[in-house]
């Protein structure tokens, strides 16, 4: 990725888009990469306007309404049954989700 300290809004490259798609676990075709590079460049140019007014002394707002963390009483209550939880799975076996290999051969 381009050095963020060089300019306020560095130009996005095709490799950047491919890298971001990889980080997001999102397979893109070459056509999509070209299209999104063009479109994201235009969008980023537009949204960069936020930096014009975001002075250092402004407190960021994460939620519009003040929130406090909520906890519930530590009491047992029914959850989803195993069958219900597995019913929508792409693959299940022996009452468990069946997933592709997670670790590499050498691990």
């Amino acid at each position: 990725m381009t050095d963020p300290s060089s300019t306020a809004a560095p130009a996005l490259t095709r490799d950047d888009v491919a890298h971001l798609a990889h980080l997001a676990r999102l397979e893109l075709t070459d056509t999509e990469l070209d299209l999104y590079l063009d479109q994201l460049t235009v969008i980023l140019d537009s949204v960069a306007a936020v930096t014009e007014v975001a002075a250092a002394d402004i407190v960021p707002t994460t939620h519009a309404v003040p929130l406090t963390n909520v906890s519930r009483a530590d009491v047992l209550r029914p959850g989803l049954s195993r069958d219900a939880a597995l019913a929508g799975a792409p693959a299940a076996e022996d009452g468990q989700f069946r997933v592709p290999q997670i670790l590499g051969e050498e691990q």
Binding site: M1, P4, S5, V17, L20, L23, V50, V53, A54, P60
Partner: peptide, 25 residues
């Protein structure tokens, strides 16, 4: 998803997501 991943990535978080939250204020 790509735009969001970019806005949250190291080095850009403050300039994009952080600034946007200040605009919200």
């Amino acid at each position: 998803i790509i735009l969001g991943t970019y806005a949250l990535s190291a080095g850009y978080y403050d300039a994009y997501y952080g600034s946007a939250q200040k605009v919200r204020t």
